[in-house]
Amino acid sequence: MNLTAQDEIAVYVEGVREALAGLPAATRDELLEDLPEHLAEVLAEGGGSLYERLGPPAAYAAELSASAGFTTATPPAGERSRIAETAARHRARIDRVLRRADERAGPVLGYARASEFLALLRPAWWVLRGYLAAMAVAFMLHDHDTPLGLLPRAGDDDLAAILLLSLGILGSIWLGRRARPAGSWPRRLQRLGTGFLVIFAVVGFFEVDSAAQRDYYYTVEYTDPPPEPLSDIRDVFVYDAEGRLLVGVQLYDQHGRPIRLGDPMCDDELDSPVPIVNPGYPYCPDQAPFRAGEPSLSTAPSTGPSAGDAEQPPATPTTPAIPSPSR
């Protein structure tokens, strides 16, 4: 018996069960006890789906309960049964609405009924359920100081986590492949567990989502700002066309704003920084990388007249005059 046949049977039996909602649970369970096996026989005969061969589950249920000697129509007296009857009526109405929605939504998904499509997704749900169960177990067992990752780690051991994950998924598939539990208690327990896992999944999903976002903000906070260009420049040395070092150079941008680069400090012989006294670049002429001429502060104004006055204001201005643009 393949999976789709089993699914088809489960869906059909569920439909019959819902249609028999008016019966006491024990009677209903007893009545439906053998139905999956019986329907498997019907299906094994071939000749169309259960729906085609037996009609809608509700009709099947009506015929079944009538022939088995139960009538859902006769309302037994008493407050309790009246409530049960009302509940059954509401359930039947909800059932009808769901069935209509099922049939309407089907073509959108490319199936006659949406439930046919959902039945195909069942094994995927089993796998997801196994994962969620493993995560729930790990969540209860793990050390709450460290956040839980995506693997169900109960301790530090990755292998144990993968083992737990495999166990959860295989167990869930096994549980799914088995027929529905017969008793009403195991069934209720399974429903309760499913509900718990769904809530756990939703809460966990948002938890993981916000954690991921938090991580992103942390990265932004803790990463150094990207290095600005020229940020590692400590001093500027300007040479004229003859390769002579110019001193007392003032730099301006196109708006006439002074360009400030480096650190106006010089290390003396003892390697301790002292503030420089001479204005303009270079701050520390002694550390010039190339030495074509012998630069000195006193000779600076006269060394490079050919370099242009604009680039070389007077060497010792008390208030640096803004040079006129050379063009």
Binding site: L31, L35, H38, V42, L54, E63, L64, S67, A68, G69
Partner: peptide
């Protein structure tokens, strides 16, 4: 004869 009728009848006779 309907499938559900036979199934239901069997259950009832058995009970």
């Amino acid at each position: 004869v309907g499938d559900a009728s036979v199934y239901g009848t069997l259950r009832r006779l058995f009970n």
